[in-house]
């Protein structure tokens, strides 16, 4: 059955699809997601802090589960040497694998996010505004989380979760430790652009609605430059994997 499905795909997509299909944990991810959905749907969360925690922590956790697993599977010597002997094997395989992993990530994250937004408690505030704010946050934070985890997963062979956490909390660490280390405010602000734009995602709705127009430039620049930084790093990481996979192992 898998062979019949694969042969219907354009030839360049077969290897990434085969890698994703043979990654053993995707079924576990989907089953866990389904179980989680049933639980949330039946319990019906009515506590705002729980819903916001779900929307905050779920994207990076799912990203870690999917991206780190898929790229680690791709880099296994037996898997890599099989797919790398095809004509045309190279960096493009990595990008296609990233697209397929993104699809799996969205398939799992989407229903969770929709259910959380659907059941979101509003505590007397305008319900449409609360849901709109949360929807903007989860969409942006989902994309930022995916890019962060994807970048680390392509580069690192071990300790992906730790590196992701360090990268994500680096602005807070710098904010605390920076002045003690004698780093100027201008440098701290510049360095903050190299970290995942958590604050920008949290402020995007305010900027969007005009409530914080003073932050517009900073928020937009961070949200636009971070994907460029990540895609550049992913390109470098993929190049490193395809030109030196044996040494990499």
């Amino acid at each position: 059955m898998l062979a019949s499905l694969l042969v219907r795909l354009p030839a360049p997509w077969r290897a990434p699809a085969l890698v994703l299909a043979t990654w053993r944990r995707w079924r576990t991810v989907l089953m866990t997601a389904l179980l989680g959905l049933v639980t949330i749907g039946s319990v019906e969360i009515r506590r705002p802090e729980l819903t916001m925690s779900l929307l905050l922590y779920l994207p990076p956790l799912l990203g870690l589960l999917v991206m780190a697993g898929v790229f680690s599977h791709w880099r296994r010597p037996s898997v890599w040497t099989t797919v790398a002997q095809r004509r045309g094997a190279g960096v493009a395989d990595g990008w296609r694998l990233l697209v397929l992993a993104a699809a799996l990530y969205l398939i799992v994250l989407g229903p969770f996010a929709l259910l959380a937004l659907w059941t979101m408690p509003t505590s007397g505030a305008d319900p449409s505004l609360v849901v709109e704010r949360a929807a903007v946050f989860v969409a942006t934070w989902g994309a930022v989380s995916f890019l962060t985890v994807a970048t680390v997963s392509v580069f690192a062979r071990r300790g992906v979760a730790g590196l992701v956490i360090v990268w994500m909390v680096s602005p807070a660490v710098l904010a605390v430790a920076g002045p003690a280390l004698g780093i100027s405010k201008a440098w701290l602000e510049t360095l903050a652009f190299l970290a995942p734009p958590f604050h920008a995602t949290a402020r995007l709705h305010d900027v969007w609605s005009g409530a914080r127009s003073d932050l517009t430039e900073r928020v937009l620049i961070h949200l636009l430059t971070f994907p460029i930084l990540c895609l550049g790093l992913i390109r470098l990481g993929l190049q490193r994997v395809v030109t030196a996979p044996a040494e990499a192992e």
């Binding site: 062979a3 085969l18 043979t22 599977h73 296994r76 037996s78 790398a84 002997q85 004509r87 094997a89």
Partner: peptide
Amino acid sequence: RRMHGVGFLHEDGGRGWEQATPRALLTL
């Protein structure tokens, strides 16, 4: 290798391909 491919038999065994069938692998 990128332009023409290489027929490569490696020593590493089948770890990672347990869920695939030989026919699926041959579609590459």
